[in-house]
Nucleic acid binder design. Structure first.
Lengths: 192, 192
DNA sequence: GTCTATAGGCTGATAGAC
DNA sequence: GTCTATCAGCCTATAGAC
């Protein structure tokens, strides 16, 4: 074998990373296998030594991207629930996130295409997103509120990205941020 | 001329309607001109007597779909702000809406692709969505809250559609519905 | 205005050399 | 494991008959 052991695993991980970036930026249906492999410095023929099909790639991307997001949450330096949430809201609801989908969360970028994809992909998405929902439920102390947060976060970035004016983008994400922080504060007020 | 006057306008309106349905269901990039025209009972050659390009169609769809949504709001039978909003929340945050994107709002279905489209399309989207935002601001009495509602609504349908389990879809939209109704009630409590 | 036919390019996927 | 070469099929868009 001319390739060292572990090489394939390393290339696979690299492919998931670069493909994830391209897909979040340009969309799944709009992106060809050629473009994906070019972004990784390879040619399209090599794609099929890593993935059975383009749809198999989406399945893998759903897993890796949502796992990445959970790892990002784990890097949050704060312990107290309020500070932890505030930190995540500031990170998610930012102009940086609106304007750089390739570095951001897959939910606003790819959920609409996941919704149109095969059953196996939607099941994987559900499974991985449920893990994120559990983590958020622990922090918020309320499983319904956790869904509300997820939908508000993804929806805000989705809408803000489709707008052209940067000031309007800012209005949208700030309105959501202020509202979610308030919702959290008033919930705490109720609990105490 | 072998076609009656007004024929082209009628066909154009019909094309916008059928194309809107197909695009919301299957996505813009994933749908070919052939499929769009087939849905209208025509062949692809005729497409270009109505639209300059496929991207020109998206521009027109953004207008017609968002205008349709505003017309739907105008059909709301209630006068009082609270009843008006409740009616819209029940209509938007329904399993019917989750499971039939072709009959629903364009925001959760097509916003991600609008975000990747030409400047002219994003400008049109911004212009039309701003009209909707104004209407909602009048009903809610708060322009920030109006953006929050729009993002929560679109985000909830976006996420629910990508999930597989119907019970989980129900959980998501009910959590959002309950939360938004509560937010409105507590705002009214503050105002009084 | 709609049709068929067609152009040229890109798509997902496979076969075989290295 | 990656490459080049290749396939059939689909894509957007145009030309010309009716």
């Amino acid at each position: 074998m001319r390739y060292s052991p572990g090489y394939k695993e390393k290339k696979y991980a690299e492919l998931l990373k670069t493909s994830g970036r391209v897909l979040k930026k340009n969309g799944f249906a709009a992106t060809g296998v050629d473009a994906l492999m070019h972004a990784a410095g390879m040619t399209s023929g090599a794609f099929y030594s890593h993935f059975a099909s383009k749809s198999d790639l989406l399945l893998s991307i759903v897993t890796s991207e949502l796992t990445n997001s959970q790892n990002l949450w784990a890097s949050n330096p704060y312990d107290s629930a309020e500070e932890w949430i505030d930190f995540e809201l500031d990170r998610y609801l930012s102009l940086q996130h609106v304007q750089h989908p390739e570095d951001g969360c897959m939910l606003p970028a790819l959920s609409a295409e996941v919704a149109r994809a095969d059953l196996s992909i939607r099941e994987r998405y559900e499974q991985e997103l449920s893990k994120g929902h559990s983590i958020l439920t622990q922090r918020l102390g309320d499983e319904h509120l956790a869904w509300v947060f997820i939908c508000q976060l993804a929806g805000s970035i989705l809408i803000a990205r489709a707008l052209h004016d940067e000031n309007l983008q800012r209005s949208v994400i700030n309105a959501s941020k202020f509202f979610l922080k308030n919702a959290l504060a008033s919930k705490r007020g109720m609990a105490s």
